[in-house]
Write a protein that binds this DNA or RNA. Sequence first.
DNA 1: CGTTAAACGAGACGGTACGTCGAGTCTTTCG
DNA 2: CGAAAGACTCGACGTACCGTCTCGTTTAACG
Lengths: 204, 204, 204, 204
Amino acid sequence: MAVSTAAFNEGRVPQRGRPRDASRDDALRQAALEVMAEVGYRALTMDAVAARARAGKATIYRRWESKLDLVIDTCTQLATQNLAAPDTGSLAGDLREFLSSFAAFLSGPIGKAAQALVGELPHEPELAAAFRETFLISQRDVLRGILDRAAERGELRADAPRGMAVEIAGAALIYRLMLTGDPLDEPFVEKVVEQVLLPLVRVS
Amino acid sequence: MAVSTAAFNEGRVPQRGRPRDASRDDALRQAALEVMAEVGYRALTMDAVAARARAGKATIYRRWESKLDLVIDTCTQLATQNLAAPDTGSLAGDLREFLSSFAAFLSGPIGKAAQALVGELPHEPELAAAFRETFLISQRDVLRGILDRAAERGELRADAPRGMAVEIAGAALIYRLMLTGDPLDEPFVEKVVEQVLLPLVRVS
Amino acid sequence: MAVSTAAFNEGRVPQRGRPRDASRDDALRQAALEVMAEVGYRALTMDAVAARARAGKATIYRRWESKLDLVIDTCTQLATQNLAAPDTGSLAGDLREFLSSFAAFLSGPIGKAAQALVGELPHEPELAAAFRETFLISQRDVLRGILDRAAERGELRADAPRGMAVEIAGAALIYRLMLTGDPLDEPFVEKVVEQVLLPLVRVS
Amino acid sequence: MAVSTAAFNEGRVPQRGRPRDASRDDALRQAALEVMAEVGYRALTMDAVAARARAGKATIYRRWESKLDLVIDTCTQLATQNLAAPDTGSLAGDLREFLSSFAAFLSGPIGKAAQALVGELPHEPELAAAFRETFLISQRDVLRGILDRAAERGELRADAPRGMAVEIAGAALIYRLMLTGDPLDEPFVEKVVEQVLLPLVRVS
DNA sequence: CGTTAAACGAGACGGTACGTCGAGTCTTTCG
DNA sequence: CGAAAGACTCGACGTACCGTCTCGTTTAACG
C-alpha cells in the first residue's frame, strides 16, 4: 500500500537513491483540497490535481493508492489539528465553545470535502473506517470528555443519556451541514446547546 | 431539459409521431435502482442501466439529462409514496410509528441511494432542491403535523421548540444512516423518542 | 424485398386501402441524388433524405431495403435513359458521339454517385450486379454494336480485338473520372478515339 | 494534425515524457489491413482495429486523425515498397514484367483497400492527393521510364503517344480490378501488352 | 567527487464509460 | 391502408479519465 512521505520515511534508515521530497506531499494535498472545493469529489481528476501541483501522476500514486486515498488523507491531515478539548469550567461553556469551533471547522473546505466523501462510505469500508475515526470518533471523544467532567462536577443528572447526547450533538451539526444546507452559525449552536443538550442531561 | 414521460406528455394534447412509451420509464428506473443497490452511485454506468432494461442509451438520455438526473428521479418516485402521516391519538404513539416507518424506509435501497446523492448536493443546486423537497420537506411536514396535533390536544409545553424537535428527529436518523452506519432499528427509534423528543416538548 | 412503386403496383389489380403515391418515389430519388452530390455516399443519411423530401423514413424503407438499395435505384433510374446508340454512318463518328455523350453523362452528378458506389462493390454482390448491369453492360453493348456495324461496313480489320477495344474505351473514361480526376472533355475523347481505338481496330 | 510515429518523432530532439512506441504503428497498420481485407472499408471500425492490435482507441487517434487517415497511411506504407522498375532489355519484356507485378500487387489486399478508398476521393482532397501520389504517380513514372528507355533503344515510333499509353495501361488494370471484377491474370496482361500497348507505340 | 539508484515531470499506454448520432424497425395519429 | 412523425434498439463514434508504464533529468547518499 502506498503511503505518504512521513509514514514512508519512518524506519527507513539507510535509504539509497533520491529521497522523497516531503514538500510534494503538501503541494499535492493542497492541490487536491483546492480542486475538491472547486468541483467536488466526483469531478476531481488525478490529472487535474497533478497539473495544479505541477507534479506527475506517478508522484501521486507513489504516495496514495487512489483518488479516494488521497482525499481521505488530505481531509484527515487537516481534521486532526482542529479538535481541541475546551475547559471553561462549566458544561454549558464547554459545549458552546466546542460546538462553535467544530461548526466553524465544518463550515470551511473540510466540511465540503467530508460531505463529498459521505456517498462513498457504503462501498468503501476502508474509507468508512478512516472517515469515522477522523470525523466522528475524535469529536465524539471530546464531547464525551466534556460530559464526564461535568458529571464529576455534579452538573449532570444521574440517569442522563450521555451517549445519546453526544450523538445528537454531532447529528444536529452534520444534518445542517450536509442535508439542509442551513448555516452552522452561532445562534444555531446556541439553540442546540440551550434547547436540546442541556435539558437532556443537566440536573433540575 | 430532458424530462421523464409523465411530465413530458403533460399538455401535449395532439402529439405527432410515436408517443413515448411510458413503461420504459419504469423499466429504466427499476434498472437504475437495481444497479445502484448493487454497485453504488459512482460505479453505476448508463450502459449498465440500458443493458439491464434492454433499452438504448438514447432512450435514457431522451428522458433524463444525466446519470444524476436519472437517479434523483428514481429515488423521488419511490420516496413520495412512503410518508403517510400516522394518527394513533398520542404524541408518543405518532412519533414512534412515523419514525419507525421512516427508519425502515431509509434502511432499504432508497436510503443507500439517498446517501449516494448527498455528496453531489453542494455542486448540483437542482439536485439539492429536489432532494430536499423529497427527503426533507415532506418528512419535516409530517413531523410538524404530528406536533401540531399534539399541541391541540394539550400534550406540548407552551414554549416547546417544535422546529428544533423536528430537526433533531430527522438529524438523529440521517446521522446514523449515513455517518455512523449504526442500525436504524426499533430500540434506537424508541430511545430517540423517549430520551430526546418527548422530554424536549412534552408537558411536565 | 422492398421495391419502388412502379414494380410494386404491377399486378396489384384490386388494391385495398390508400395506394402508394408514385410521386414520392421521384421526390425521394431526387432528394437522395442531391444529398449524395452534396456530401457523398458515406455521409448520406436516411434522415437527411427523408427530411429533404419531407417524407417519413418508413416511406423510404417501404420502397427500398436500405440506403444502398435507394442509391442504386436512384442511379439506375437516371442511367438507363442516357445511353442512346448513335448512328453517324462511320466508326469514327459513332465512337466520338457515343463517348462524348457518355463522358458528359459521367461528368454530372451520376458520375459522382457511381464513384461513391465503387468502394462498396466487393462486399455487396447485389449492388455489384446492379451496378455492372447499369453502368457497364449497357455501355458495353452500345459500343459493341457500334463496332459490329462498322465491321459490316468493312471498316474493321478481320482480327480486330473488339472486346478489348470496348473494355479500353470504358476504362479510359472511368479511370479519368474516378482515379486521376482529370476532366472528361472533348479533346480527351478525341485523343482516345484517334490515338487508341481507331488504330486498334481499323483497317490499314 | 495527428501523424504516425515516424513523422512525429522527426525533429523532436529533446523529447519530454514517454516517447511514442513506434512498434504500435505497425501493429495498428497491420490490424487495419486485416480488418479492411475482412470486412471492407465501410464496416471497418476503430474499435475492431484497436481490439485486434490490443491497443486503446486513443492510441490510434493520437497517430491518425480518422479512419480514413489510418487507412490511407496503411496502404501508402505498403504501396511504396512494391513498384520496382524492371529492366529486361526490351519494351515488351519490361511491360509484361511490370504490369504482371502490378497486377499481382493490386490483386492482393491493397487492391481491395484501394478500391474502398476510391469512393472517398471526391470529398477528401487530402486523401485524393495522397492516393494519387501513391497509386498513380509512382506507377505512372515507372511506366514512363520504361517507354523512355525503349525510345532510346529505338523501339518506339517517333510520334508514339507515350502519355496516352501510360494512362491506358493503368486504366485497363484498374477498370478490371474495381469495375468489372474480372481477374487480373497473366493472359489479360499479355493481351493488354500485345493487342493494345505495343501496337500503340512500337515501330512498324 | 564520481557512481548509483530512486524520485521527479512528462506523457504514452491499454482500458472503460461517456454522451451523440445514424441505421433500420415499430407505433402512433391523421387522411 | 398509406403517409408523416418520431420513439425505439443497437452499435460505432471520438473524448476523457483511470492507473500503469517508460522516458530523460535531478538529487541525495554511498563509496
